[in-house]
Design a protein around this nucleic acid. Structure first.
Lengths: 140, 140
DNA sequence: AATTCGCTTGACGTTGACGTAAGCTGCGAC
DNA sequence: GTCGCAGCTTACGTCAACGTCAAGCGAATT
């Protein structure tokens, strides 16, 4: 697509709901590397793609150093040597297993939460809660 | 089951691979409340169950205050009043949605990781990597 | 020309989740 | 008795991930 579009820092902060401070921090940490027009940062499609990965990584609980590792892997397993590539493969698998573990955790949590909710709903259905209370709650 | 079994702090640190400091910290934060025999903490089945929830919450990226909230909900929707119970239901649903979003994130990440790995494997299959390198890697 | 606006670079502050070190208390083994 | 654990408390230290000023620059508006 339009991989050579560019973005200002403000556009990206609004699109992804992060502060400018955060994006500059990620740059300091070497996670992204926008170009400059004079002094102003000018983000490319590649930067944007990396930000998406960073934020998703954050949401699933990865630390920034873990995220940096993954981003580096995407970079180096193309242009790196043989050893680099095989090392990357190993690291990718590690991340894979970690995420699968997390997926199990989440599914267990989901089951428990659903059970808790139906427990409450059953109590409601059995009339242990007056309708007046329900109405009051619905109107909040 | 044997819900009235008791545990020492050491047993739990080994079972769950956390430090004693961590368990005491969780107690300070009001997440668990072991009894005392003299000065020594003596954990019950309820505490153990809570620790399991705490650690799972941690792994899926919840903060301790979020975890505390959930634990409190499990407590209060039983013995609390009507308003408490309905409030609990709402909170449970919020957690539910958050986790479902996370599950989507994880599944997307899994797809990308698998794609990255097969990309590497394809390169290997096409002979771009010498077998000597493969052997060397396998022997590490 | 002066103000405003958006962006910039330091540099120090903050919060969460513990780590760590010091010093105390039983308590079973020797 | 005393040695060595295991556990306890108190309190300061640390690290990550930003937040929050402070002070300045460049272009555009008034």
């Amino acid at each position: 697509m339009n991989m050579n579009r560019t973005f200002t820092i403000r556009q990206l902060t609004k699109e992804f709901d992060v502060t400018a401070r955060t994006l500059r921090f990620y740059e300091d940490e070497g996670l992204i590397a926008p170009e400059r027009r004079g002094q102003t940062r000018i983000y490319g499609g590649r930067d944007r793609a990396r930000i998406i990965l960073i934020l998703r990584g954050r949401r699933v609980g990865f630390s920034l150093s873990e995220i940096r590792e993954i981003l580096d892997l995407y970079d180096t397993h193309h242009d790196g040597g043989v050893a680099q590539t095989l090392h990357a493969r190993k690291k990718f698998e590690e991340q894979l297993h970690k995420l699968e573990r997390q997926k199990v955790d989440i599914e267990e949590s989901l089951i428990e939460l659903k059970r808790a909710i139906t427990t409450i709903d059953d109590a409601v259905a059995k009339g242990r809660l007056q309708s007046s209370a329900l109405v009051q709650h619905a109107a909040e």
